[in-house]
Design a protein around this nucleic acid. Sequence first.
DNA 1: GGCCGTGTTGTTAA
DNA 2: TTTAACAACACGGC
Length: 272
Amino acid sequence: MPELPEVETVVRGLRGKLRRRRLRRPEIWRPDIIESDPAEFERLTAERVVLDVARRGKWILLHLEADLTVLAHLRMTGRFALVEASAPRGTHDHLQWPLAGTRRALRFADTRRFGRFRLMNTSQVERYLADRGFGPEPFEVAEAEFARRLGQGLRPIKSALLDQRVVSGIGNIYADEILFAARIDPRTPVRRLGPRRRHRVYVGMREILRRAILAEGTSLVNFVSLEGRRGAFAAELAVFRRTGQPCPRCGTRVARVKLAGRSTHFCRRCQR
DNA sequence: GGCCGTGTTGTTAA
DNA sequence: TTTAACAACACGGC
């Protein structure tokens, strides 16, 4: 569920609540969600001050003292909340850090348990991501670079947008919305996209993501911000999960197909 | 009760 | 090299 706009919403919430606060020793109820050594994770994050909270694609970065950074990925159903540290552990609560000087704790819950944590030196984060081919931020990449990174292959443009090595942060919802904004059929092989249509994808990407961040993301089933608010972008969706409903531009019924194993929504008339 | 689908990503196979 | 399939897991809906 959480893509770049939802993660950005969470990060902004966390930044306001955590910056300059000290984490107590974490209570790790499900060590298997920690990809680095859990014992070390527990020991090294204990009693550290949070310097800042940042985002890279869909990754959340908790920058701590002593050149330490916690990388957190929500995957599909992960969520953070600030709760009373003594509140009973829910079925899907997997870890928490009590906060020094308060009764509260930063708690992580995840029904499907796909979410992951990892601790590393702050100075190694960019290297770690780069080694995995992680692409640039949509708001930082230059247009020419973006157009080049889409490549010349046969794969559909939607698959390229979902590929975090092209740009980081786009998932199924925003890929569909971006291609509607760009008026391009999601099945179009990238090699058939010339400069004009690549330009439209670039503009659409920035426009949709900007508006979605402004709306604090999209909530269809799960997503809530740190304050428990649902994202308002659900009301602005043009095609996603609107199969059979009229296209906002021309009134044609929104079509749904399977692409790269994912539900894909588009207007057959507006998107070519 | 069983099957299908779900917004992510890493690994494996083709 | 590139891309498709699948697994990780839990739940709701039919």
